[in-house]
Structures are given as C-alpha cells and as structure tokens.
Write a protein that binds this DNA or RNA. Structure first.
Lengths: 192, 192
DNA sequence: CAGATTTTTGAACTACAGGTACAAAATTAG
DNA sequence: CTAATTTTGTACCTGTAGTTCAAAAATCTG
C-alpha cells in the first residue's frame, strides 16, 4: 500500500481553511499554506493538486461546520423568536470574539470572487440557501405557534434574516464597538 | 512647466476603480491597470506611486459617488417610507443591472481586506457610517411625520437598514434571480 | 534657440507565486 | 528480503507582480 501520509489531511484542510479565511483566496500563497500546515510543498501538491482545489475543500469544510453550528442553535428548545434571537446574538458574539475579525468565510468569498469560479459560486449559493431554509423553518414554526404574524410571507422574512445576518457579519469585520451590532439584533427582532 | 500629462488622472482613477471593483484588490495586477487605463507602467507609477495608493484613490472616488447617489435618492420628495423603499429598490436594480455583478466596492473591500490596512479600513468604516446617517435622518423624518412608530430606536433602525443593504448587495453578487432580493425589500419595508 | 523641468516610454530588475520533477525514504504485500 | 507503491524534501522552472530607471519627448522660460 505504499508509504502512509505523515499528516492528517483533515487537519491540513482545517488549517488551510484558517489561512484562506483570514487572508482571502488571492492573497494566500502556497508558502502561507505550507507554513501553516507544516508540511512540504511536495506533500501539499501531491495531496491536493492545486491551491484552488484545496480552497474548495476548505470552503466545503467551512460550509458544513458553519451550517451545522447554526442549525443546532436554531434547533434548541424554546420559542421560535427566542431561538432566532439567540442565533443572531451568538453570531455577533462569535464574530466579535474573533481577534482576526475574519467574519464569515462564505460572505468573504462571495465578495471577493463572485462568479469568477462557477464551482465556488455554487458552494456559496448553496450555503446561503441552506441558512435561509433554516431561518424559514424557524419562522414557520413561529407562525404556527402564533408568535409571528401568520400573514407575513415566511420566505420573505427568511430572506431578509439572511440579508441581515450577512450584513452584520460584514460590519463585524470593521466594527470598533459592539453597540451597533447589538442594536441591529434588537431592531431585527423588534420587527418580527 | 514640463511635459504635460497625456492622460487625465481623474479618468485614470475612475478606470482603476472599475478594475479594482470587478476583480478585488489582491487579484488586480499592475498589468490589468495599465491595460484598462491605457498608459504605460512607468506613467502609472510616476503618477500614483503604488498600486495601493491608486486603490485608495479609487476607493475614495467610489465612496463619494456612491454616497452622493444614495443621499440624492433619499432626498427626493415624498414620504420617508417611500423614499426608503425607493432607495432599496434602486439599489437592487443597480446591482442586478450590472453584468459583472460587482456588488458594492466598499462591502467587497471590507470582506477582502478587513483590518489589513488601517487607512482602507477607515475609509470603509466612514462610508458605512455615512450611509447609516442618511438612513437615520430619513427614519427620523418619518417618525416626525408619524409614518414610523416614534417609540422605535431610530439609530437601531438605521443600523439595521444598513445591515440589510449590505446583505442584499452581497447576495446580489451570486443571485440567479431577482425574486429573493425583491422579497427582502418587501419584508424590510413591511417591518418598518 | 538653449536650458530647465516634467512626463512618457519601454526595458530592466528583484522577488516570489504557483507548480513540476525527481530521487531518496518509508511502508507493506508477497 | 524484494518488489511495488506512495510520500517527502529539495531543487528547479516559468511567468508575472510590483517597481525602478535611463533616456527621449514635450512644454515653458528667457
């Protein structure tokens, strides 16, 4: 079976994710990656093929972990409104607690590359759609429970929550204090 | 007084803005810039000093034109709510009408660079603050006119409008159809 | 027109991005 | 042990990023 890998590819992807997340795709060099992962260039290219292929893996990993994190939050016990508020607040704290202010990797990728690469664009689109679905399900639960006005368009509310979250995560990257972000959560929840 | 410039620096900055906007900072090369501007590399560096200095000029130009555009929209006659809706709708149409799907250059810059460069971060921060102020003034007019509930926190509503707009502009970069964006406008305005 | 001043042009230069080639080393199947 | 397979580190290569420079060209001064 040949010589086994001396590094864990999963760990490597995770570290690569960290670098791409912090610096963006274009500004990340192969040198950055090997420095962070702690393997040689030969191993890197043998294992992953190209910078872009590794980026795709890193982005997919980000998508999965982020989506699961958010879905778990929305799946908590409690009222739908409380769960939505809890999720938004957790996101704010997550972003503000990051010393590197990396924001959301999917948002960053959308802003940096847009439609430059079809596969990347698709991954980002799917991630947004998945977040929107999770919001929509929670909004509909709230409507069934009578907490949220049933006359309002659940799809529209979910899309708007998605936009709010994306906006907050961009703002978190340059925010100097937390008050604006906390205000946004309050205003959004007050509008539900 | 020496040989006069054979190109208009203002036009050059405007064209540079277009390239940076479309490709992002890191992915834009000096070659891209000279190709687009139509001058030699020597002239470029003689006139602007560095890629980064030119980017700052381009970003400042974007900030001014964008802010004036939005402020003019919000300054139209009509009710405050109508003006807010009109501004959001105009932004959506602007973004969807761009074949390159460049979104908002300030948002893209925030996502790509964050705090990497202090001056850039500051320009972006100020642009966000200016947009927020314009929203806030309009919201307060609406409150004085009785269109918007005076008990709600105008600062919070303005911040939340800002986040909504930023989110929409990110979504516009990957959106395949316009319905989601139009829904967001409806949901946001329905919540005011 | 000579000279001063400023810009243009195009070539040149350094460093590094991104990736390939290869031989030595490690591992396992038989 | 040997053969086969895979990894690894190093060296290497091509192209270009980002910038600088020398010399030519254009304008103004007197």
């Amino acid at each position: 079976m040949g010589r086994p890998k001396q590094f864990d590819p999963d760990v490597a992807v995770e570290r690569a994710m960290g670098v791409f997340w912090r610096k963006g795709y274009a500004a990340t060099t192969p040198q950055d990656l090997v420095d962070e992962i702690g393997i040689g260039k030969g191993s890197l290219y043998n294992a992953f093929g190209s910078k872009h292929a590794l980026f795709e893996l890193a982005l997919a990993r980000y998508r999965d972990s982020q989506a699961e994190w958010l879905e778990a939050l929305l799946d908590h016990p409690g009222s739908a409104k409380d769960r939505l508020r809890g999720a938004l607040e957790a996101l704010v704290e997550l972003d503000l607690g990051d010393p590197d202010r990396r924001g959301c990797m999917a948002v960053n990728t959308a802003a940096e590359s847009a439609l430059a690469d079809a596969e990347t664009a698709d991954t980002v689109r799917k991630m947004f759609a998945r977040t929107e679905s999770a919001f929509r399900a929670t909004v509909e639960e709230g409507q069934r429970a009578g907490e949220i006005d049933g006359d309002r368009d659940a799809a529209a509310l979910a899309a708007w929550l998605l936009a709010t979250v994306i906006g907050m995560r961009v703002l978190a990257k340059t925010a100097k204090d937390a008050t604006r972000l906390r205000r946004i959560v309050d205003a959004a929840m007050g509008s539900l």
